[in-house]
Amino acid sequence: MILKDEMLDSLLTELSKEQIVYVPKQVNGTTRFAPYVSSDKMKLDQVNTVMPPKDLLFPQTQNMYHYGVEKNSGNMFIDPVIESADQILFGVRSCDMRSFDCLDAAFLTKGYIDEFYQAKRDRLTTIAIGCTEVSETCFCESMGQDPNHAPQADIQLRHGEGGYNVTAQTEKGEALLEKFKPFCEEGEVEVADVHCTLNVDASNIKDNLDILHESHELWDSMSYKCLNCGTCTFVCPTCYCFDIDQENRCKEGVRFRCWDSCMFSEYTAMAGGHNPRPEKRDRVRNRFMHKLNYFEDRYGKMLCVGCGRCIEKCPVSLDITVLIDRANELAQAEETEAAHA
């Protein structure tokens, strides 16, 4: 089924009647997924938005409950806030689709269901677009993704000359496809596959980091230049750490959770002043170990999808692919040494 380019706006306008449709676009000086408005130009040719779509499911600041004391009765109250709405995420790329697998694993498996996340997740429909170009920092293929196809998406689009091939991949997708039909025609456009230009060998990275988890040579050299800002964690589609805090006004308040970053020294600060990760080396190590080793251990997948945002935005160009290369090198050297010993 083909969706012609010129029909795209009509389709999105139709879809927007019943749900909020998030599309990649320029908003206030940056690019992110934001509600579709027919007059706003979308950034569908853009490789990746600056901000990932994770805030649709896991907002940077999310209210959890209101509490307080009622004025007249003096009774205490606690009102949970669980926000949820039917949402469509349109134009998401394979890497960001994969990031939802990671978030799902963290928030919905291992015996605990995060209801705030689930309420949003259950009502999300995803329409992925295969990449038509790659940025120099894209390395999703090295992390096991296919830039042309996102198997998790409800509907997959692929752009070719004049239009998109439309394929439903899930039941949810089949249902939404009915809405597509009036705007589509039979047939298929020819599409061309793209491939990442940045490739690293991440096939053994978990095992290699098992060997190197205490390697000063690796972690010292990788962390010297880190500033310990939170840029990499906040632009990351899979970083899911949060902190819980509250805001009080007179006799009322709201408890909220907000993104936190393992790059901040405060992240591990304990009551009484002890900090188990006192140096930036400890924090850098934790971030990369979590991405490439601990998460794999616990959930059987990498917590890095290869979107390249951290590489693009790091103020000091600290590059996860350089770390992977370096770790492979050092692990190999260590193995050779062990064999000789």
Partner: peptide
């Protein structure tokens, strides 16, 4: 307001 609306408070400005 336009500027700080998009601030993500990564503190890169402070740290650099």
């Amino acid at each position: 307001n336009m500027a700080f609306e998009r601030c993500i408070r990564c503190y890169a400005c402070r740290d650099v």
